[in-house]
Design a protein around this nucleic acid. Sequence first.
DNA 1: GTCAATGCAAATCCTTTGCATTCGG
DNA 2: CCGAATGCAAAGGATTTGCATTGAC
Lengths: 129, 129
Amino acid sequence: MERNTKQRQEIIETLKACYDHPTIKELYDLIKKNHKNIGQATIYRTINNLVKEDVIRRVECPDGIHYDYRKDHYHFYCLKCSKITDVFLDNKIIDNLLLSSNLNNIKHVNLVFEGICDSCKGKSSYEIK
Amino acid sequence: MERNTKQRQEIIETLKACYDHPTIKELYDLIKKNHKNIGQATIYRTINNLVKEDVIRRVECPDGIHYDYRKDHYHFYCLKCSKITDVFLDNKIIDNLLLSSNLNNIKHVNLVFEGICDSCKGKSSYEIK
DNA sequence: GTCAATGCAAATCCTTTGCATTCGG
DNA sequence: CCGAATGCAAAGGATTTGCATTGAC
């Protein structure tokens, strides 16, 4: 169905090579380096398609939407420095969660732990960004 | 610290009376009915303050940010009709989740189950909005 | 009386759309 | 070739900001 264009390939490859959960703007800036006349409408359209096709994942955070190529884990968001880190959970834990929710037909569990990361822990007064 | 202004009261009361997770625009339209010259900048500023003060909660969904006055539960989002419903989970389940995440200093767990709701279940071809 | 909060308008930022052109199948 | 995807520019929304004024304390 979807055409395997240069742009689509580049977007997927860039996100795959990227372990730090870029926003769409960050992704656009990264891709611009290699492919300098890609249009931002292409990024928006392609990213939205990839999410619908379940090729990539949206990570919904307090500071906006980030994207992740990998889909086998969940996330931690630091309320102080906004850093996102991967959280790997046992399947059994998620099964338990689904079981006790009494829901069915769940396609995806959007799970973000929010708190203060270790390196921010020691620092003085924090402000939620 | 924060002044208890008419506008702030009205925003809190409106959200408290509201069980359907409004977006900021929906909240603005609701409040306009009673308080017709409130400025939208006030809504934005106040809502953001209330989130920081942990008085209200952001609900991050595929179709954008919704707000909830109540904080004792989680959410289900229907990928077909975009309806949000409350999901109550036993504290033990969340404790387990936190325990197996190996994280500490977690202030809040943002948890949204995404899937197809019962009333959309029967319907034909669905498209993720 | 003071200063934080408000209302208004403008500015800014983010995302989508229209359309002519390109290019994958 | 054909039609879906692209690039560009403009439109459309959403959110923030500057500033004079108001009102909570």
